[in-house]
Structure formats: C-alpha cells, structure tokens
C-alpha cells in the first residue's frame, strides 16, 4: 500500500464567537484600576473622582429626588422631540419614496439642511419660541427629522420592486400597497434609523440643556462643573451612558420582536 498523509486542515479562525464573561471582566478590571489609582492618590480627587465617590453622588441624587427631577425633564424633552421628528420624518421620507415630485423637492432640501448641526439653530428657535420647553423640543425634533427622512426614504426605495408588482397584479389599491408592502418592507431600515436618531436626540438634549435650562441632565452636569463638584459631574455622565444603553437595549428588543420573520 502506498504511503498516506493526512490532508492538512486550513479552515478555522476568522469566526469571533463572543466570550460571554469577557465584557463583565473587562468592566470590572477598568473600574478596579480606576478605584486603585484614586485610592493611591495617583488621580487627584478634584479632577477625577473615584468610582466609589461617583456611586455616593448618585445615591445622594436619588435620596434628594434630584435624579428624578433631572431625568424626568430630559426624558420628557427627548420623548416629545423624538416623537415629533420621527413622525415628520416618516411622513416626508415615505412621500419621497413614493412620489416623484416629493423626491425631486425633498432630496436637495434634505441634503442642504441635513449637515447643519441643529444646535446652531437653538438661538433662532429661542427667538421664535422663547427660552422655555418648545425651543429645546424643536431642536431635538429638527435633529431627528433629517436622518429619519433619509433612512425612511432609502428603506422604501430598497423594497424589492417585484413585491410592488405582485401587489398590483393582485389588484391591491395603492394605499394598501404602501401600508402592507412598502412600509413593512422598509421597517428594518427605519428601525436602524431609530438607532441613529435616538443617539442624536440624546446629544441634542444635553447640548440644549447646557445652553439654557434649570432642570435636565445637561443643566445638572454644567452646574456641577461650575461648582467643581466632579463627583456629581461624573455621576451625570454615567447617567447619560446608562440612558443610552437603556435606549439601545429597548430598540434591540423592539427589532427582535418586529423583525422576527428575518
């Protein structure tokens, strides 16, 4: 019998399967290192509070009810502004996906207005609506509007034409084609647009609150900075991180539920 050799294996690799505990261990290690540097005096408390100090600051915020007050103010602005901007963006984006006229007008206008950092409009909006809530909500709504228009329009444009033809071949009225074929088909794109628009809303609420507000996380962080209360300041930043995580988690659940057919 002739000599045999095994076929060398060349597959494998390039397949990063998540390691479940890695993220927690990394977090713990970073926080432990931070705490150690603070306790040993390597990090001056004035510039960077220790994790324990931040935790204490958070606990005090909860006790005094300040946390609820600031969080409620910010969340209300985000919710209102995001809802208005999203509804407007869905409507305009859908119209642009369907009607040639809307597209020819909407595309250049959107391209011109999208790149403006919307916080630059806040002074103008304050002139229009006053220093109160409406100007902040309008800033967020504007910031959310344009990315939503673009993601909706792109998503509707990407719905396979053959599905529309199928709808027509079964005599579906135009409104039913939009409602039962175009919008569900665009849903994946629209939902991933929500990720972008929700993070924009978070940025804008903080910026708007820093420019002029009594309550809200942005106002709170700014006030803490002015008083050099770095433990409170970092507590506010941690709060923002948690808020962002919560929104992203909620969106993931929504996606998993709405797109379970994928």
């Amino acid at each position: 019998m002739p000599e045999t050799r095994p076929v060398p294996f060349r597959g494998g690799g390039f397949n990063p399967a998540g390691w479940r505990w890695a993220s927690w261990i990394a977090f713990a290690a970073i926080i432990a290192a931070w705490q150690l540097s603070s306790s040993s005096g390597l990090l001056p408390a004035l510039f960077m509070p220790s994790p324990l100090a931040v935790l204490e600051a958070l606990a005090r915020l909860v006790e005094t009810g300040a946390l609820t007050r600031h969080l409620a103010a910010s969340l209300q602005r985000i919710a209102l502004g995001w809802a208005v901007g999203t509804l407007g963006g869905l409507a305009i984006g859908t119209a642009m996906g369907i009607f040639a006229v809307a597209r020819s007008i909407g595309l250049p206008v959107t391209s011109a207005l999208f790149p403006i950092p919307k916080i630059a409009l806040l002074p103008l909006l304050i002139l229009w609506f006053g220093i109160g809530e409406p100007s902040k909500v309008a800033t967020i709504a504007l910031g959310v509007l344009f990315p939503t228009i673009i993601s909706t329009y792109t998503a509707i444009d990407g719905v396979p034409r053959n599905l529309i033809r199928m709808g027509q071949s079964f005599g579906l009225p135009a409104a039913m084609i939009v409602w039962k074929i175009l919008l569900p088909g665009a849903l994946p794109g629209i939902l991933s647009g929500f990720r972008i628009s929700s993070s924009i809303a978070l940025i804008l609420v903080v910026a708007a609150e820093m420019i002029g507000a009594e309550h809200g996380i942005g106002a709170f962080i700014l006030a803490a900075g002015n008083l050099m209360q770095t433990d409170q300041l970092v507590a506010g930043v941690v709060l923002l991180s948690l808020l962002g995580l919560a929104v992203s988690f909620g969106l993931s659940r929504l996606e998993r539920w709405l797109l379970r057919w994928r």
Partner: peptide
C-alpha cells in the same frame, strides 16, 4: 400571476401571504 422568484412577503406567514390577495 405566479412569479419566478415567488414574490412572497417575508414578514407574513404562509397563511398571511395567501390571505393578502383577499384582504381588500
């Protein structure tokens, strides 16, 4: 029509896809 690429709505079940033709 019956289509070469089936033209099914991926977000509807089998039942939902067939019922689409009747719903209006």
């Amino acid at each position: 029509y019956i289509f070469q690429d089936f033209a099914l709505l991926p977000w509807r079940t089998v039942e939902g896809n067939v019922s689409l033709a009747l719903e209006h």
